[in-house]
Amino acid sequence: MNLILRPVAAEFSKILTTRMWWILALVLFGYIALIACGLAALFGGLDSGAISPDAVNSGGGTAGLTGLGSIPPLIYSFAASVGYVFPVLLGALATTGEFRHQTLTPTFLATPKRGRVLGAKTVALIVMGAALGVVALAASVGIGALVLGGFGIDPLLADGETWGLIGRTVLAMAVWAVIGVGLGVLVPSQVASIVIVLAFTQFIEPLLRFASTFTQITADIGKFLPGAASDALVGESFFTLASPGGAVLTSWQGGLVLLAYGLLATAAGYFISWKRDVT
């Protein structure tokens, strides 16, 4: 145990000794399992003829939906494209909780080098975010593959590309937790932080991403939105399927853009709130 590892271990201990992490994990699992189960049943039903294709009005982006080869990864990708809110919330709650419950005082007394504490929190949340990624995948891949298999569709679990997707999903969820930490230090008010997370991820960003596809110029900007970058990193999402022709980043570009959001927010928050007087 040295000066770097001790604060990291303390941050893990903070997360694991309150109830929030497993409540979020439980809700995440249920939510993703529901979506994966429903969609796998829908596509499975269409494929097996149990549901007539005429009964489905699939709107604009039908191209990807009929090519059955892409259906399992699409269902698996819901782990990140829907579940990413959960690591953001966990990161934001871990940070804003320190302000709200005034635990910054005992924290900074035990570790007076404040940058070290924020670094430790970021490291701990990367691991927790990855763990939430595993939980989300257990729902999307576990439940999704089971239902697809039930309809006689190959869940592609032997496919290397599927496992690539799984690995990139874990990575994306880890980086989203860093963004949560960054948001928490930028906006230390817990209520404001949660409102921003929910409003931005559930409403503002989807609208912006949709609107940005209207012209080439806005599309070139829109692909840098965090959700678009995350989808690019994972490599598959219902959103990119629903906006055919939309500009996308490559996988590694998406990952770097997403990480940049997290690190920039954390660094800015360090100066805005973390270094301030604790009164």
Binding site: A10, R19, H101
Partner: peptide, 20 residues
């Protein structure tokens, strides 16, 4: 008032023994 209300006393102190 420097406590997370959902943490037990032993866990609260344990966090900081770990840190220090």
């Amino acid at each position: 008032a420097n406590f997370h209300p959902g943490r037990t006393a032993a866990h609260h102190l344990g966090v900081y023994t770990t840190a220090a």
